[in-house]
């Protein structure tokens, strides 16, 4: 999960803000889980429904492959590998902070103020808002597809590749989390623009399901250098699958995911702070 950055000018002087954020996040999450569990039947139904429904996503790809052998030069197991990694990472981020898009609503109806009155970081509270375990459905489905892909796909399992896979999932989740935080922060200025965030999160997850060769080169450049979604799964996956990347970047870039994710988190953290500061000076 994302932690509110430490130190800096506007100084929230709570000692150990990262640990404090994690703690507050867990406290709020627990309350939401208990709330959902007070409607147990409803929870079971929607959790299952969520799992089944996200499977339709992958079914679309399977249907495409009922007409063709390969898409953009990738076989079904290879596309499934992309799908599984993208979906798992996105699912994790969605599970952890999927309610960031409600921030605009909270600003509008004034309930953000009640969060700011508590002695714990606001970001942690907003991220944990409406925590829904049913979102685990997407993660499970992503992992299942990934498992199937790993069984069918032809990867040369060197030590490096074995290590790269879990790192990729975590890095991907971190990049999506950063997008969620940045999107949330953006709503301090444009509360109604929550949709833009969807184009990067849901849109990004859809994009990354397909081989990069399918897309126009400028689009691929955009998601490599501007919003670095390519680091979620494309670059490491291409390496694992032994395929060249369409931009012809140097090989070490495939391993740059972790630092890129860190930079993303730091930038989104700064944006968040700027958002909070703006809220506190405008109150709207």
């Amino acid at each position: 999960m994302e932690a509110e950055p430490r130190g800096g000018a506007a100084g929230e002087r709570t000692p150990g803000t990262v640990a404090e954020s994690v703690r507050a996040y867990r406290l709020v999450v627990r309350m939401w889980m208990r709330s959902t569990m007070s409607y147990r039947a409803s929870f079971v139904m929607t959790a299952f429904g969520n799992f089944a429904a996200t499977a339709l996503d992958f079914l679309t790809i399977v249907l495409m492959f009922s007409h063709v052998e390969a898409l953009g030069g990738f076989s079904l197991p290879e596309v499934a590998f992309l799908y599984g990694t993208a979906s798992t990472s996105f699912g994790l981020a969605d599970l952890l902070m999927g309610s960031m898009d409600r921030l605009g609503e909270r600003v509008r109806d004034g309930t953000l103020d009640t969060l700011m009155l508590r002695p714990v970081p606001v970001l942690a509270q907003v991220a944990a808002d409406r925590f829904a375990l049913r979102r685990l459905g997407r993660v499970v489905q992503g992992l299942l597809v990934l498992g199937w892909a790993l069984w069918r796909v032809d990867v040369h399992w060197t030590v490096l590749n074995v290590a790269l896979l879990p790192v990729t999932l975590v890095v991907g989740a971190a990049i999506f989390c950063a997008v969620y935080v940045a999107g949330g922060a953006f709503q301090f200025w444009a509360g109604d623009a929550a949709q833009v965030q969807n184009s990067v999160t849901y849109g990004g997850a859809t994009l990354l399901q397909y081989p990069p060769g399918v897309f126009a080169r400028d689009l691929v450049r955009g998601v490599t250098f501007v919003v670095p979604l390519a680091f979620v799964n494309w670059l490491p996956a291409l390496r694992m699958l032994g395929r060249p990347d369409p931009l012809g970047l140097p090989g070490w870039v495939d391993f740059a995911g972790a630092p890129v994710a860190l930079v993303c988190c730091a930038l989104s953290g700064l944006l968040w702070r700027a958002g909070v500061r703006s809220y506190r000076s405008t109150g709207s």
């Binding site: 929230e12 002087r13 309930t111 009640t114 700011m116």
Partner: peptide
Amino acid sequence: DRTRLARRIGVVFGQR
């Protein structure tokens, strides 16, 4: 020092 102050004040919003 909003968070530090938060420990020392209590707030009740009647409609929220």
